[in-house]
Design a binder for these strands. Sequence first.
DNA 1: CAGAATCCTTGAGGATACTG
DNA 2: CAGTATCCTCAAGGATTCTG
Lengths: 102, 102
Amino acid sequence: MKYTEFENCGLKKSLDMISGKWNPLILYHLFHQGNYRFNELWQTIPKVSKKVLTKHLRQLEENGLIQRKEIQGFPPRTSYNLSNKGKKLGPILKDLDNFGNS
Amino acid sequence: MKYTEFENCGLKKSLDMISGKWNPLILYHLFHQGNYRFNELWQTIPKVSKKVLTKHLRQLEENGLIQRKEIQGFPPRTSYNLSNKGKKLGPILKDLDNFGNS
DNA sequence: CAGAATCCTTGAGGATACTG
DNA sequence: CAGTATCCTCAAGGATTCTG
């Protein structure tokens, strides 16, 4: 496999999806509590700036791992939860966790 | 899970082990051909500089995923191959590859 | 509340030259 | 052959302030 091929392979795509600094933690929380509003998630992971948290969430959404819902009204609210695709990552992340602990 | 806990969890450790730019490709080649000398590997992945390739290999070795053997004599030779631990990553990387292709 | 805008720091990775 | 040694670039992430 050459580098140009690697760039398009599934492994690379998967790693790009989850390797952002906060992505594993975001996914972890969505796995275990299901549903978060933006500020709720931010307070759960207080060390990340809102800008960066937003960026991570946008990428996760673009990659189809999470869903973002706007709730109409004022003040504005958003709700984030895992997509079906995102849920399929669960066992793999668990495998990686076990591997890292071995 | 708080960030401080995440820093020490297995998932973080695993991601740190494999998320270096060239690590997946290095592991891929070692999986499929078993044994490489330094220059052989470098010519297989020619876009990486020797400095960076060395750094990746050192880290993989420190994390116990690969083994490095020096062959005495001149010119110097080294041989790299997967450790038993490294081989256990195979199925997980395959899962990630499938996931990324889905 | 859920971001967007702005400016800044840091380190991973790259390019090139040198060496035992 | 298998690396070191230097110098350099760039983008991820951080800090802070502003807004509909």
